[in-house]
Each structure stands twice: as structure tokens, then as C-alpha cells.
Simulated scan of single mutants.
Amino acid sequence: MVILTFPRELRLLNSRHYDYVFQQPQWASSLGITILGRLNKLWYPRIGLHITKKNVKLAHERNRIKRLTREYFRLHQHELPSMDFVILVRKGVADLDNQKITKILGKLWRRHYRLYCGS
């Protein structure tokens, strides 16, 4: 049985975790969203979000993007490779609707999966 929770262990919690990803990332980017990823030594993926006020002005828009990203990750965590991911957002993403953001996230994570598996 697959458990679809989002516990604390699946999050990048401190600057050392983020720095690890930023040192030698694999990256995938599309329409203002970039996902950086780096293999970890754990048996599960982890996620960190970097959505700045500079790029997404309104708090409710930043929260919406974070919520959509966390939900997509939660539902698909068992399909992802054991990597640490950092999601970066540029200007203009707040103008996209929820379905478009979810579609972009799916495309980018599939690209990471293909890079990891070598297919």
C-alpha cells in the first residue's frame, strides 16, 4: 500500500540541504519554473521551495504556487528518484492557472526521472 503523506523528512529544512543541491544540480526549466535536483543518499526524494517576493509579489499567489507544488510532490513522491529537489520560480508564474502550473511541474519532474534513469 502506498502512503501519500508529506512528513517533515521529505522537506529540505536548512541551508546545508539547499547548498548541497545548489553545488552540482541537474536542472530542468520551463515557463518560469525551474527544478534543480541532486541525488541524495536517502531512499526517498525531498523538496525545498524558493519562491521570492521579488518574483511573485502577492502572498496569496506565492502560497498558491507552494500549495500546488507540495501537493503534486505528495501525490507523485513514489514515482520520483531519490533526489533532493529545489523549486525556483521566476516572474510571470503567478499569471498561470493551477492546471498549467501542475502540468509544467509534471513535465519537469518527468524530465528529472528520465535524466536519473538514463532513458
Rank of each mutant, 00 (worst) to 15 (best):
M1K: 07
V2K: 14
V2E: 10
I3K: 09
T5C: 04
T5E: 14
F6A: 06
P7Q: 08
P7I: 09
R8E: 14
R8H: 02
E9W: 05
L10D: 06
R11Q: 09
L12E: 06
L13R: 14
N14E: 12
N14Q: 05
S15W: 09
R16L: 13
H17V: 01
H17Q: 15
Y18A: 15
Y18W: 11
D19H: 13
Y20D: 07
Y20M: 13
V21A: 11
F22H: 11
P25F: 06
P25T: 11
Q26P: 01
A28M: 01
S29M: 09
L31P: 00
G32Q: 12
T34G: 03
T34R: 13
I35R: 07
I35V: 15
L36A: 09
L36Q: 13
L36W: 07
G37S: 13
G37Q: 03
N40V: 08
N40E: 04
K41V: 09
K41W: 11
Y44A: 08
P45G: 14
P45Q: 12
R46V: 06
R46W: 06
R46P: 14
R46K: 11
R46A: 04
I47C: 15
I47F: 09
L49F: 12
H50I: 14
H50F: 09
H50R: 13
H50C: 15
K53D: 02
K53W: 07
K54P: 00
N55M: 13
N55Q: 14
V56W: 11
V56N: 05
K57R: 14
L58V: 06
L58E: 15
A59H: 12
A59M: 13
H60T: 15
E61V: 05
R62I: 10
N63H: 14
N63M: 08
R64T: 13
I65Q: 04
I65P: 02
K66C: 07
R67A: 11
L68T: 05
L68D: 10
T69V: 05
T69E: 01
R70A: 04
R70I: 06
R70P: 04
E71A: 11
Y72E: 01
F73I: 05
R74I: 01
R74Y: 00
R74L: 03
L75D: 05
L75P: 03
H78C: 01
E79V: 00
E79F: 03
P81R: 00
P81I: 00
P81V: 00
V86L: 07
V86H: 05
L88G: 03
R90L: 02
R90Q: 10
R90I: 00
K91M: 07
G92R: 00
V93I: 05
D95M: 03
D95K: 13
D95I: 02
D95W: 04
L96P: 02
Q99Y: 06
Q99T: 06
K100C: 04
I101S: 06
I101M: 04
T102A: 00
T102W: 02
T102E: 09
T102V: 02
K103P: 00
G106N: 08
L108D: 00
L108I: 01
L108M: 01
R110P: 03
R110Y: 01
H112Y: 02
H112P: 01
Y113H: 14
R114L: 10
L115H: 02
L115Q: 10
L115K: 12
Y116V: 08
C117K: 14
C117S: 11
C117D: 09
C117M: 07
G118Y: 03
